[in-house]
Amino acid sequence: MTTLHVIAHSPFADNRLASCLRLLGIEDALLLCGDAVYALRPGSEPLRDLQAMNLEGRLFALKEDLQARAIDGGLAKAVDYPAFVELSLHHDKVNSWL
């Protein structure tokens, strides 16, 4: 069964992202929102960690959170809320890292 993992916390404040990357199945997807989009800062450690995984087509970021923080999605596909809902439905379950 596939899981969409959703993270909203900054990767510089705790280890949610690092743990999630360890638990991410090969068919699972990851959506970054809120301060979690800071993981996409060019030149940052979390971006290097993301790049080291083969996440093509499985890494998403909420468009408005990227825009608000002046971050270029780059590695992640930017999605709006309707696309977020679409993604949730596309997976068997959603795991929110509260």
Partner: peptide, 17 residues
């Protein structure tokens, strides 16, 4: 790690607190 990935895949719902 591989066993954790299999564990999460096995359950219908997952919540992380």
């Amino acid at each position: 790690a591989p066993a954790l990935r299999a564990l999460i895949a096995r359950f219908d719902e997952v919540i992380t607190l």
